[in-house]
């Protein structure tokens, strides 16, 4: 369980290295989400994305990246919406411990 001072005012982790699967569950719980294997698939992918591109994806890039790596069925905004309601790119990045996407318009 991480202290609240590890997060910014919007609930994003300050330090990528503070992240762990338990922390992901903690952030998810604060957003009223229970993480399933479908969530984890996207979380793992987001962490790989961050390693590859040194940035968190905006929605468009997230959808395309999911399509490339999880198949066309999951590379759809409606699918990501069902897992991470509201603003999927922002919420999934938050749970994955990534900084807030800075081109999240």
């Amino acid at each position: 369980m991480l202290c609240t001072n590890a997060f910014d005012e919007e609930g994003f982790l300050y330090n990528l290295t503070d992240w762990s699967p338990d922390v992901a569950a903690q952030i998810a719980a604060s957003e009223n989400l229970q993480l399933s294997s479908a969530h984890w698939e996207v979380i793992d992918l987001l962490r790989a994305y961050y390693l590859a591109y040194d940035s968190a994806p905006a929605m468009r890039a997230l959808v395309k990246y999911c399509a490339l790596h999880l198949g066309p069925e999951k590379g759809k905004s409606i699918y990501l919406m069902s897992l991470f309601p509201g603003s999927p790119a922002k919420l999934s990045s938050k749970i994955s411990g990534l900084p807030k996407p800075d081109n999240c318009l």
């Binding site: 590859a52 591109y53 040194d54 940035s55 905006a58 468009r60 890039a61 395309k64």
Partner: peptide, 15 residues
């Protein structure tokens, strides 16, 4: 700093 070279690599994902 952010790695600009890597960020540029994501351009195709933004079409």
């Amino acid at each position: 700093f952010k790695n600009l070279g890597r960020q540029l690599a994501s351009l195709p994902l933004y079409e």
